[in-house]
């Protein structure tokens, strides 16, 4: 086997690094597509209509999502025989435009999950850093709470909440947050524990830095990487959870549109009007997948060991 000593001139760098054209394009696609999907969804959520400018009649959604039109009910999508070009993705059993409802649903579904992510990440990070830094009994105690939170059936808690305070936007946010922080707390606590033992923290203590300063200036910036990765991956989790809650009827209430409640609405009509559930379902799938791809990509980018070559 002489090929181990190839002729340097004939070979290009890419052939040496062993990364073929195909894999590089695939690698880039797994970044570009998720970013495009997520950007599109965010634009939909913001510009569904311009009610926040006092102009509810303008926006991306072609129709009012809640306006019923009994004459146009169960219309199939425009590209299928019997569809109307006015209703691109068809209508539901009350004649509401599916496209408009998916666009408006993005607003509800994304804001619920982003809010929940920021609350859980914030609380979890603070508790995690504190627990890891202080250690000892405080740490033991906090981590047992985390264990309980992680083993508690989330759906049951959400149902209890829905019964107690009634379903709605804030109930969903609360239900998603009340247990979700534990993931962050556990992850960040581990990192914090590791960083606390590092030389530069010892050095900061020698310099007389206060515990608060050490946690803020030395530990926090070093857990941000893992935090961002987890948050991105959680986008998908949260959207799915919101969908699940709305699907079983304890989440976002009618007539407000969220993707989960739309899937739920179309459940009974699946045999004759498959489009009612399918399009919001596709939206959920796209966002979840994009979140996961993006999370993986960010993790690879932030990990110096994977950054080389």
């Amino acid at each position: 086997m002489v090929s181990i000593i190839p002729n340097v001139k004939e070979k290009t760098r890419k052939q040496y690094t062993g990364v073929s054209r195909g894999t590089r394009i695939m690698k880039n696609l797994t970044l570009i597509l998720p970013v495009m999907v997520l950007t599109l969804m965010v634009i939909c959520a913001i510009f569904a209509n311009l009610s926040w400018l006092g102009l509810p009649q303008y926006g991306l959604a072609p129709h009012d999502p809640n306006k019923t039109a009994p004459r146009d009910k169960f219309l199939p999508p425009a590209f299928i025989e019997g569809g109307k070009s006015d209703y691109l993705l068809g209508t539901d059993k009350l004649g509401r435009d599916i496209l408009s409802r998916v666009i408006h649903g993005a607003r509800v579904s994304l804001s619920v999950s982003l809010l929940a992510i920021f609350i859980t990440a914030g609380v979890g990070t603070m508790l995690g850093i504190f627990s890891g830094y202080v250690g000892g009994r405080v740490d033991g105690f906090l981590m047992r709470i985390v264990d309980v939170a992680l083993s508690f059936p989330g759906l049951l808690l959400a149902m209890l909440l829905a019964v107690a305070v009634g379903p709605g936007f804030w109930t969903v946010v609360f239900a998603l947050s009340v247990l979700g922080w534990a993931f962050y707390a556990r992850l960040v606590r581990g990192e914090s524990l590791r960083i606390r033992q590092s030389d530069f923290v010892a050095q900061a203590r020698v310099n007389g830095a206060s515990p608060f300063r050490i946690m803020l200036r030395h530990i926090f910036p070093n857990v941000v990487n893992s935090l961002i990765v987890l948050m991105t991956l959680q986008v998908g989790m949260m959207i799915l959870s919101e969908a699940a809650l709305s699907y079983i009827g304890i989440g976002i209430t009618a007539p407000q549109a969220s993707w989960g409640s739309m899937v739920s609405d179309g459940r009974a009509e699946l045999d004759r009007a498959w489009w009612i559930s399918t399009f919001p379902g596709v939206a959920i799938g796209l966002v979840v997948m994009s979140g996961n791809f993006l999370g993986d990509w960010i993790r690879d980018k932030l990990d110096p060991r994977l950054r080389q070559v």
């Binding site: 181990i4 000593i5 690094t17 070559v309």
Partner: peptide
Amino acid sequence: PEPAGRIVGG
């Protein structure tokens, strides 16, 4: 460490 490292001569 493949594929980055190669013996190119000798």
